[in-house]
Amino acid sequence: MNHDAYPDNYIRGILNSVKSIAMVGASPVNVRPSYFAFKYLAQRGYDMIPVNPGHVGKELLGNPFVASLVDIGRPVDMIDIFRNSSHIMPVVEEALTLDPLPKVIWMQLGARDDAAAAKAESVGIKVVMNRCPKIEYGRLSSEISWMGVNSRTLSSKRAPAPTQGMRLSLNRMSVGGGDTAASDRAAKNKTEQR
């Protein structure tokens, strides 16, 4: 996978197929991006599991915190890592000990570890880096268009008005993006400079 520019169908396929998401680094502080993303994905019907050793014994929006991935005790489809790039590898290594393996490892906006990605991909796990699943879900459903964001999708179909807890269709027509987008090219240049 080219991690500089993901085709929409790759992201769409992941968000349409996973049901449970373990969020590593989920924060109970309601101004942290992980809290926003956790809450949004829960409202859109995903089975969310907060993973943060600092908050064991507490709950995040009704879901009990677990200390680590191995403590989840049931299969998870996707692991969403809200940690800096330098803390990614140990989480991926732990994920690779799970049985069954997760189908997807997702690293948040700003996080990228190509070696960890290669390790996960070598055992068939799909990897997304430097993206936010909330933003991508909002973009592909065009819900994010309320904020003036370019969803890079079109549709001539009448969609239901989104309500609390509703799953939205992500199957709109994509209109490019990826390596056609100046923003993705800029991100690639930044990665190369490192």
Binding site: N9, S156, A159
Partner: peptide, 25 residues
């Protein structure tokens, strides 16, 4: 659902707009 870039005129007509969810306008 293929990732292709439509032309400028298509975007000028369609981008950002879709039938109104409530009325179908």
């Amino acid at each position: 659902m293929s990732d292709r870039l439509p032309g400028f005129s298509t975007l000028a007509v369609h981008a950002g707009a879709q039938p109104d969810p409530t009325t179908g306008a």
